[in-house]
Computed example of a mutant assay.
Amino acid sequence: MQGQTDQNSRRRRGFERASALLEGRIRRVGEKRGFAVARLLTHWPEVVGDETARICRPVEVRYGRDGFGATLTLLTTGAHAPMLDMQKDALREKVNACYGYAAIARIRLTQTAPTGFAEGQAAFAPAPKPPAPAPDPRTAAAASDLAVEVRDEGLRAALQDLGTRVLSRSKR
């Protein structure tokens, strides 16, 4: 009964961001691995930078018995480990800035091969997106006709692009 009232109240509010719908689930999964702040997992490239995010990813956070700072374990390939080892202090500062306090006291590196065991596979860089197919000239012309009355150049171009995308979608 409780789940049904949650759905009804959600429907009355209208559209919600996908991140808001998944926030609770991501937090629960992250907390199992010791990540009190799920933002560290979900925004890893923004926290440490694109260059570093391509060569490593966070695996877990372990809190010691004495409670003075945690250990962040990062997964990387063997070739990148020495470079990351030299950047530990800067990485710790960036991660602690994400937490808002000195949560991480140590960073531990775990090395793995680029391919291997199921848990240790290290494909860090996302695959490039395939290029979008060129729109049909008739569809582009129809979208251009719809936006011809708009005076602002930037707005007209954006509306033409939107119109082309909407008109070229397959009917469902």
Rank of each mutant, 00 (worst) to 15 (best):
V61A: 12
V37G: 10
V29Y: 02
L41A: 10
H43I: 06
V61L: 08
G34M: 02
K32G: 14
G49M: 14
V48I: 10
D50R: 13
G34E: 15
A38G: 01
D50A: 00
E60P: 00
R54F: 13
V61Y: 15
T52W: 05
V37K: 07
E31H: 04
T42A: 03
R27P: 01
V48G: 12
E46K: 10
R62Y: 10
A36H: 09
R54A: 13
E46S: 10
H43A: 15
V61K: 06
R33W: 11
P45D: 05
T42C: 04
P45W: 14
R33N: 08
P58Y: 04
E51I: 06
G67R: 14
L41K: 01
E31F: 00
I55C: 11
G64Q: 06
A38S: 02
A53I: 11
C56E: 08
G34Y: 06
K32V: 11
R28H: 02
R27C: 00
C56T: 03
G67M: 14
P45E: 10
G30T: 03
V29R: 09
P58R: 07
A38L: 06
L40C: 07
P58Q: 10
L41R: 15
R62D: 13
R39L: 01
R28W: 05
R65S: 15
L41I: 12
R28K: 12
A36Y: 13
T42K: 13
A53L: 01
R27M: 04
G30P: 07
I55R: 03
V59A: 08
L40W: 00
V37Q: 07
V59G: 01
E60A: 07
V37L: 14
Y63W: 14
R57F: 02
D50N: 13
R62C: 09
R33T: 01
G69Y: 09
V37F: 11
V29C: 03
G69L: 04
E31M: 01
R28N: 09
V29T: 03
G69H: 08
T52P: 07
R65N: 09
R27I: 00
G64T: 06
F35N: 00
A53S: 02
R28F: 11
V61Q: 09
G30Y: 10
T52V: 09
F35I: 13
E31T: 04
V48D: 02
Y63H: 01
V29A: 12
V48P: 11
E31G: 11
G49L: 14
P58H: 08
A38F: 12
E31V: 09
R39A: 09
I55S: 14
E51R: 12
P45A: 04
R65W: 05
W44S: 00
E46Y: 08
L40I: 04
R39D: 14
I55E: 05
R28A: 10
R62S: 11
R33P: 00
F35T: 10
V47F: 03
V47W: 00
R65Y: 08
G69S: 12
T52E: 15
T52N: 02
F68I: 06
